[in-house]
C-alpha cells in the first residue's frame, strides 16, 4: 500500500501542484461572494449604527456613523435597547443547553440500542421502524407540535397529567404553565440565570427528538462488534454488566464521540426548535445565540448590533470548531 502511494505521488510536477487549487476554485468562488464577503461586510457594519433608514444606500448612507466598539461593549455590558438581555447568560445557557442535551441523548441512545440488540427479542424490526420516526420529522413540525403539547389549558401534557392525577383521586385539572412560568423550579442550578420550566419542557421535547439518532449510530456500531468477544468473556465468567462496561462501551466509543460532537453542534444551533417552541421566552430565559441574533435583525432591525453579535457567534463557533476538530479530526487528510 505504502509503495503504491509513493508511486502515485511521484509524478508531482507544477501542473499537479496547482491541481488541488483548481478543484477548489468553484467552491471558493461561490463562498467568496456569499460567505466571505458578507463576513467582511459584517465586520464593517458591526462598527456602525446601521439601521433601517440606512438600508437604501448601504454603506454609502449619509447618515451612517462609525461608532467604534460601541456595539461590542453594548452587547457585553447589556447596553442594547433590548429587554432582559445579558450576554454572559445567553452564552452560558447556550453551552449548558447543548451539553445537557448530549449528556442525556448519548447514554439513552446507547442503552436503547443495546436493548434492541438483545438476541431473540421479539418484533425487533417493528421497534426499529418506530424508533426512527423522530429523526424523520422536520424540527419545525416537532417544535410546533411540542409547543402545543405543553399548552397550559389544552396541551396534551397537562391533559395527560390530569388523567394520571385523577387515578390518585385528584379532582382539579393540572394547569402547569410550562412555557410561560418564570419562577425556576431549581433556583441554584445555573448561577448565571434561572432555568425556567420552559427549559425542562424543551429538554423533554428535545429528548424525544435527540436520542433516536444516537440509537441509529450505536446500533450500527454494535453490529460491528465481533460476537466471539462476548463468548470469550462469558467463558471467562464475566457478568452482563462487566461485558457491557469492558467490551461494549470501549468499542462503541469511536463511533459515539463524533456522533456526540455532531449532536452538540446541532443542539448548540438548534434554531428552528427553540424559535418555534418558546421563541427564547419567557423573558429570554431560553434564548440561544442564534435566536437572539435573528431577533436583532428581524424584529429589532438593529443591523449594526446584530453584526457585532454575529462576530461574537463567529468567535464562539471558531473555538468550538477547533476543539471538536481536535476530537474528531474531521479535516485531516485521508491520503
Amino acid at each position: 500500500m505504502a509503495t503504491a502511494k509513493m508511486k502515485f505521488r511521484r509524478g508531482m510536477d507544477f501542473r499537479r501542484a496547482i491541481l488541488p487549487y483548481l478543484y477548489l476554485v468553484p467552491a471558493f468562488a461561490v463562498m467568496s461572494v456569499i460567505t466571505f464577503y458578507p463576513l467582511i461586510y459584517q465586520v464593517i457594519i458591526s462598527f456602525t449604527d446601521f439601521q433601517t433608514k440606512d438600508l437604501r444606500f448601504g454603506l454609502a448612507s449619509p447618515e451612517l456613523n462609525f461608532i467604534g466598539f460601541k456595539n461590542y461593549t453594548d452587547i457585553l455590558t447589556g447596553g442594547l435597547p433590548v429587554q432582559n438581555f445579558n450576554f454572559t447568560r445567553v452564552l452560558v445557557y447556550n453551552f449548558w443547553w447543548a451539553i445537557t442535551n448530549v449528556m442525556v441523548h448519548v447514554p439513552a441512545g446507547v442503552l436503547i440500542a443495546v436493548l434492541l440488540n438483545t438476541p431473540g427479542l421479539w418484533f425487533k424490526k417493528v421497534y426499529r421502524a418506530i424508533y426512527i420516526l423522530p429523526v424523520v420529522i422536520p424540527p419545525l413540525v416537532v417544535a410546533v407540535v411540542w409547543q402545543n403539547i405543553f399548552h397550559e389549558t389544552n396541551g396534551a401534557m397537562n391533559q395527560f397529567l390530569t388523567t394520571v392525577s385523577q387515578w390518585f383521586g385528584a379532582t382539579d385539572p393540572v394547569r402547569i404553565r410550562w412555557l410561560t412560568e418564570y419562577t425556576p423550579p431549581i433556583p441554584w442550578l445555573l448561577p448565571t440565570g434561572p432555568l425556567t420550566l420552559a427549559y425542562y419542557a424543551m429538554m423533554i421535547a428535545n429528548f424525544w427528538l435527540g436520542w433516536p439518532f444516537m440509537t441509529v449510530v450505536a446500533t450500527g456500531a454494535l453490529q460491528s462488534i465481533p460476537k466471539d468477544l462476548y463468548e470469550a468473556a462469558s467463558i471467562d465468567g464475566a457478568s452482563g454488566p462487566q461485558q457491557f462496561w469492558n467490551i461494549t462501551v470501549p468499542l462503541l466509543r469511536p463511533a459515539m464521540i463524533p456522533a456526540a460532537v455532531y449532536g452538540f453542534i446541532t443542539s448548540f444551533n438548534l434554531f428552528a426548535f427553540v424559535f418555534f417552541m418558546t421563541n427564547g421566552g419567557p423573558a429570554r430565559s431560553t434564548e440561544i445565540l442564534v435566536t437572539f441574533a435573528y431577533d436583532l435583525v428581524r424584529n429589532l432591525r438593529l443591523y449594526g448590533a446584530a453584526a457585532a453579535f454575529s462576530v461574537f457567534i463567529f468567535i464562539v463557533a471558531l473555538i468550538v470548531f477547533l476543539v471538536t476538530n481536535k476530537i474528531t479530526r474531521a479535516t485531516e487528510s485521508y491520503t
Binding site: 488541488p20 477548489l24 467552491a27 471558493f28 463562498m31 456569499i34 460567505t35 466571505f36 464577503y37 458578507p38 463576513l39 461586510y41 459584517q42 457594519i45 446601521f50 438600508l55 448601504g58 453542534i265 448548540f268 444551533n269 434554531f271 442564534v290 441574533a293 435573528y294 436583532l296 435583525v297 443591523y303 446584530a306 453584526a307 454575529s310 457567534i313 463567529f314 463557533a317 471558531l318 468550538v320 470548531f321 477547533l322 476538530n325 474531521a330 479535516t331 487528510s333
Partner: peptide, 27 residues
C-alpha cells in the same frame, strides 16, 4: 494551506446562515 482552507470552508457549518443574515440581507 489545505488545513487553513478547510477550516475556512467549514466554519459556516457551525455558524448557521442566521449568523450571516444581517450582511446577506443588506447585500
Amino acid at each position: 494551506l489545505r488545513q487553513v482552507l478547510m477550516v475556512l470552508l467549514f466554519i459556516p457549518l457551525l455558524m448557521p446562515a442566521v449568523g450571516l443574515s444581517a450582511p446577506l440581507y443588506l447585500l
